[in-house]
């Protein structure tokens, strides 16, 4: 049921329990040191370099870059598209998870695998795959290249599994007794769903949606072939960064990148808060 290729069930955090843990020995201390150096070299220093480059010109330069009409249009388009996709996914993802858990029909297992495909596919291939059906040589006569609908479709494709895969396990674990209790208290099936089941799914939907939102904001590969990169029309944040880099405007690229980084960090924090709230409810 839940063979997810990239399980979006949120980060695997160690528990807060620290008793019963070993104290660092010389060997493990060296191990920790090596790991931290590598992590810094690979992740922390480069990300710090991005922040440094964005801050180098001061707040004014940073602000000017982001409020430049063309950049701002790209940012706005990215946020609006990502928000739309997130709303659609929150609804459709929940419906898909519902059908996969509650319904029973021939071929359901295949659908369950299909959900994972957008995760498993390289992003550039995802773009190419969509273009075969909805591109210039579309057999159904739809061409999404260089349209906002195209960006929407690509984002919908790559973010499909997030809500489905976070809601599915919660739905499986839901207690049937609770639904029977609601029924014997007089609640119709719809009322039971709205007042009992849906509230239990909200944390999972929130978690899946924020993962999907973060992914949509930062998506690059699948949009390269689809979005025509027309300023003010179909240019999104990640492609704007690429354009800045290719134009040797590192500060501009870094400014947009910092914004995307911020979204990533906020997402992680939101997920952590959601996870803790759920843990408290028990």
């Amino acid at each position: 049921m839940t063979d997810t290729l990239v399980a979006p069930t949120g980060p695997a955090r160690p528990t807060r329990r620290s008793s019963g843990l070993f104290r660092l020995t010389p060997t493990s201390g060296i191990g920790l040191g090596v790991a931290l150096v590598w992590f810094s070299v690979l992740v922390l220093l480069p990300l710090a370099a991005v922040v440094g480059a964005a801050a180098a010109g001061g707040w004014g330069a940073f602000w000017n870059t982001l409020t430049d009409a063309q950049t701002f249009a790209a940012l706005r388009l990215t946020v609006v598209e990502a928000a739309l996709v997130t709303v659609v996914n929150a609804v459709i993802g929940t419906v898909v998870a519902w059908v996969l858990v509650r319904d029973k029909f021939f071929g359901k297992r295949i659908l369950d695998v299909v959900i994972d495909i957008p995760f498993a596919l390289p992003t550039i291939v995802a773009g190419l795959v969509l273009l075969t059906l909805y591109g210039p040589e579309s057999p159904v006569g739809i061409n999404i290249v260089n349209t906002r609908e195209g960006i929407f479709l690509a984002l919908l494709f790559v973010t499909l599994p997030f809500v489905v895969r976070t809601v599915q396990p919660v739905l499986i674990e839901l207690d049937a007794d609770v639904e029977e209790a609601a029924a014997s208290l007089g609640a119709s099936r719809f009322t039971t769903f709205r007042r009992i089941i849906l509230p239990s799914l909200v944390p999972a939907i929130t978690a899946g949606s924020s993962l999907g939102f973060a992914r949509a904001i930062s998506e690059f590969g699948s949009l390269v072939l689809i979005s025509g990169n027309t300023p003010y029309q179909t240019e999104v944040a990640s492609l704007k960064i690429l354009k800045f880099i290719e134009g040797d405007n590192q500060a501009g690229a870094a400014a947009v990148a910092v914004l995307l980084l911020l979204v990533a960090i906020v997402t992680i924090v939101v997920l952590d808060l959601v996870a803790r709230r759920v843990a408290r409810r028990g």
Partner: peptide
């Protein structure tokens, strides 16, 4: 069950968490 007007209590409480 909705129309029977019975109260049902479950072994594992089935409270709305």
């Amino acid at each position: 069950p909705q129309k029977r007007n019975v109260g049902f209590v479950f072994q594992h409480y089935a409270v709305f968490k």
